[in-house]
Design a binder for these strands. Structure first.
Lengths: 107, 107
DNA sequence: TTATTATATTGCAATATTACGATAAAACAA
DNA sequence: TTGTTTTATCGTAATATTGCAATATAATAA
């Protein structure tokens, strides 16, 4: 076949997998990194920072937006991007739960 | 083209992206979930738990092993799987750094 | 030795992702 | 209006991922 058997897994498992999928490309990690290097939101210079063509960057930004990892607000001709802190909390919490469960185990 | 432009990004960005890629499929999330539901390591019943054929499960386990997220030790005819706590720490730390940086920002 | 059991690998088809040129759309300036 | 700038979308080629039947391998049991 080729397509993931999404229906065979829980909503939670699919949700967290999709979050990780959004972060599973170095260009998208680089975008998040860049948004974190500056003190404010970034208006319209993301394309210049990445070693990729503009349509490719736009596509990566779209995936990060769809995963709710970044938010974009229109600001004149440019678009201002910000990281969504709630999603970072969610992922961090996911690993916190894993850590808790690992404490009760031995390997 | 089609292939990721891996060389254009830093080693760190590729590393963390590969970690997330290993966790970007619901079957692999389900495997990690399952390994966490029991108190000890699991010897040879992962295939029965997942709604996928044995070769597919084997492939997903291989990807988790390659990403260093789980470890497998041969135990007779079966293989015992465990989560690697160090990797969980690494990912959790990654988000801890992000959270710290987010504190200095406004959106 | 021959079974049996558990896991891995091979090969392939279906689908998804990545990248980018060309083009469109949206907002503003002159 | 026309031009400029910025971002999005379309179309398509190259590559990667997913899933599984068939088969191979490895360890033990009889």
């Amino acid at each position: 076949m080729g397509a993931s058997k999404t229906d065979s897994f829980s909503v939670e498992q699919n949700e967290i997998a999709n979050l990780f999928k959004a972060l599973s490309h170095p260009a998208r990690i680089a975008i998040v990194d860049y948004l974190l290097t500056v003190d404010t939101c970034i208006c319209g210079d993301i394309v210049e920072v990445l070693p990729l063509a503009q349509p490719t960057v736009s596509q990566h930004l779209k995936e990060l937006k769809n995963a709710n990892i970044i938010k974009g607000t229109i600001e004149g001709t440019a678009i201002c991007y910000c990281i969504n802190p709630a999603i970072i909390d969610k992922i961090e919490n996911h690993f916190g739960v894993i850590r808790q469960k690992l404490r009760n185990k031995c390997c």
